[in-house]
Design a protein around this nucleic acid. Structure first.
Lengths: 199, 199
DNA sequence: GCAACGATGTATCGCGGCGATACATCGTTG
DNA sequence: CAACGATGTATCGCCGCGATACATCGTTGC
């Protein structure tokens, strides 16, 4: 228990970091702010919120909104423990954080973490993608002759997409390196060369 | 029951269309041939196979492989009913077939269906993507000023990806139109203009 | 005023797929 | 012939999705 894949937890904590919110609002922002990531359902959200309250990472309080008609609207707010836990989760740069969804959410909150963590996650993510690229190219070469045009087109398109993703990562990594160089020179060399060893 | 989201069923039937196979082999091809789509687990595959057998769409038989040591290796084979059902599933061009996964699998088997079905699925898929584009652009415009650089970069990247996908779809649609025109002229006009009305 | 309606808002349930795991046999290597 | 990794079938628990129910707010129109 309390596993919940982590990513949902991270996203909720991160959004609540900006301002207290209703569950409803939380859900909307999850799909709009965090990009094209599919909106998660209430079936996941509310149990997660309940869990976070139980852990003392967020608190729920009545809505001070309208006139004072007692009705059940709940505003969730981050606690000090919650902020701490958020930082801790965000900085985790293990293999799990290279996953598509996990990376997307972490990247959206990059502004709240330090340069080293950003670089670690970026490089790790690139490694994960290059791994995928290898697999793709491998099975592509292995099956290319006996596939029809459509299957081939699909494979090529998939390959292109991942390659494009890698290029995007490279730009981001360069940006980070430059930013770092401005602050503390002669340290960009060691970072870009992480050798992508798996877990 | 028997719903199983359809896409798994379709993929298994399609792969079995080429040649009889073991479950193990089936699983490997699911991730290599059908592109970058995540490998589905045995936890889904075997129950699905069992279900297809129960429906009489495939049959299971002992492996004629090695020497004759009785051991449990099972080769699955498509039946006549299975072939028919596959065609029927493949040709379904309802809203469900515009989904990412569903479209990918159907596209991989495009060679086994007719030009009209191909065009219907292609145009529908493009409509779905343009719908997504609208949502993205909407929430983008609505939130752009109060977001930091990273969140903005993420949104832009997401937008680019979907736009790129639409461009790919357009190329495919053009190709299909040309192909059709070669065979039977003056019929390409009516097809490209499907107005993407939802379900 | 108030009826009607869509957006806002909280909550639960069933079910399907995923990941882990167990177990068995094949083929190769030293 | 022992050891090991690839091949192969099978199941189980758990998580998250989609559907759904229900209540209230704010607006519109008469």
């Amino acid at each position: 228990m309390a596993k919940r894949s982590g990513v949902l937890e991270l996203a909720v904590l991160g959004l609540l970091h900006e301002s207290p919110m209703h569950g409803y609002e939380l859900r909307k922002r999850l799909s709009s702010q965090l990009g094209a990531f599919r909106a998660l359902s209430y079936g996941s959200l509310y149990p997660c919120l309940k869990d976070l309250v139980r852990q003392g990472l967020i608190t729920e309080s009545a809505d001070p909104g309208a006139g004072g008609t007692r009705r059940s609207k709940i505003v969730y707010q981050l606690t000090a423990d919650g902020k701490e836990h958020f930082q801790q989760l965000l900085a985790e740069s293990g293999p799990a954080s290279w996953d598509d969804e996990s990376f997307g959410v972490r990247f959206a909150f990059f502004g709240r973490t330090d340069a080293d963590t950003r670089m670690r996650i970026l490089v790790g993510r690139r490694g994960r993608l290059e791994e995928r690229l290898d697999n793709l190219r491998g099975s592509f070469a292995r099956t290319r002759e006996r596939l029809d045009d459509y299957t081939t087109a699909l494979q090529n398109h998939g390959l292109d997409s991942v390659e494009r993703e890698v290029r995007w990562l490279n730009e981001l990594i360069d940006d980070e390196a430059n930013r770092k160089q401005t602050t503390s020179p002669s340290s960009s060399e060691a970072l870009g060369l992480g050798d992508t060893t798996k877990e």
